[in-house]
Design a protein around this nucleic acid. Structure first.
Lengths: 236, 236
DNA sequence: GCTTTGTCGATTGTCGACAACATACAATTT
DNA sequence: AAATTGTATGTTGTCGACAATCGACAAAGC
């Protein structure tokens, strides 16, 4: 810690505070996949939109190889589908898929609630995103509200302390995100959405399994309370 | 159906009965991925085993591209991991992963049971694999028994009529398969395993949710009743 | 003797080019 | 005119070669 070498090193490191933190070595395919995934789940690329490797390669100034690999990642995410020698496109959503996606989400979140209560986990971490949501709702900032909602639920899953659950939830939630971005009815009052979360925290704090599960089921069900057909794209 | 053209076609088709069924166009990457996956989940390639693209390409007489894509599929399956510029290897299993895998499996199968009973689904299709298992158990054919068990559970999931559930279950079950292949304790009597399934069918036929869930929970729990540490490979 | 630096082999990452294939449309034939 | 065949175009599938990076070991310097 204070031997000559380390001292020298520290001195050299501290002068004019250069940024010597580890540089991020994100593989190209991952960077590309992240970009495309974001475009898809935010609705900027709608279901049915075609992805042409050569065009994307030109636009992003890379070769086709990393583009191909990125698209394949999205394919295993279930966001893109490929037809050999024909083309790749953002996977069209069916009513069934939408319904099933929300059913699986509910399954996962209810499991998380069960584990949190069973494990006596401290749920204080949920207050921050919850407060953010109330704030965003009052300001009428829908985007921040959605972001807060995602943080709330992701935190909930994290607290369940189950890596595989988190991983599985992630792959489902990206589709949830996409569906939410695609549906255009803005009927649900923002304040209501935000307000729905606090009771869940309360129930978790009281270790009230019945109430927590009921609230969580109702919460995830309510978000699914719209006509899935509205956002489905015809595979034209 | 009986116009001149169709008649001619049918005549031409029927003479000497040539096999004109659609030829299978399985992409190379899928064929390769299937082969490698099989090798992994049957335990022929153990956790930690390295996968070298060039070597595999030579062995299978294809270029590196489809090999890469196949390995990437296995990567998103969670069966293989890649370290850039270092190598690829069969993902080592941690005790935690094994435990969590079986927990998720139980979650899915219990959900299937719930849906089957709620939907009033006919579960007759479960008898076939169940009978096969009893037969295999009496013959002492462990391999057939395991295959029968897989068919039984896959049929169960299928009966739940939930595409996304089936898909998710598949990705979990391949890991279950791998774990089962890796553990070498053969203490559990074959006949017991086979016998465990019939009561589940009975409960489903009686639409007894409580009993079915309890039996299914117990069944999946029992299979997880071994020391996960035994099959974990050190990431050496 | 210890540290630092240079070099080497192995592996993946990326690239550009060509082949395979499917679709749509024009050309040809009946 | 209708059906069949040929052709053109666009896309993905596959390939071989080269670049980038890593880990380990040897070499050089203090």
């Amino acid at each position: 810690m204070s031997d000559p070498i380390s001292g020298q090193m520290a001195q050299a490191l501290d002068m004019s505070a250069p940024d010597l933190s580890p540089i991020e070595q994100t593989p190209l395919k991952v960077q590309i996949a992240d970009r495309l995934r974001r475009a898809i789940i935010t609705g900027k690329m709608r279901p049915g939109a075609v992805l042409v490797e050569t065009a994307l390669a030109d636009q992003m100034n890379v070769s086709r190889a990393p583009i191909r690999e990125a698209i394949q990642i999205l394919e295993s995410d279930g966001l893109v589908e490929t037809v050999a020698y024909k083309g790749k496109r953002v996977k069209p959503l069916t009513v069934r898929e939408v319904t099933e996606t929300f059913e699986m989400r509910q399954l996962y979140e209810v499991l998380a609630v069960r584990r949190i209560i069973a494990g006596g986990v401290d749920v204080q971490a949920l207050h921050r995103p919850c407060a953010d949501m109330v704030e965003a709702a009052e300001a009428g900032d829908r985007e921040s509200l959605v972001a807060g909602d995602e943080r709330f639920h992701r935190t909930l899953i994290r607290l369940a302390d189950h890596d595989l659950l988190l991983q599985t939830w992630n792959s489902i939630y990206m589709r949830v995100h996409q569906i939410m971005a695609l549906r255009n009815d803005r009927k649900v009052p923002l304040v209501d959405i935000a307000a729905n979360h606090l009771p869940i925290i309360r129930a978790l704090e009281k270790r009230d399994l019945e109430a927590a599960v009921a609230l969580m089921s109702e919460h995830t069900r309510a978000l699914n309370d719209f006509d899935p057909a509205k956002i489905v794209q015809d595979p034209a």
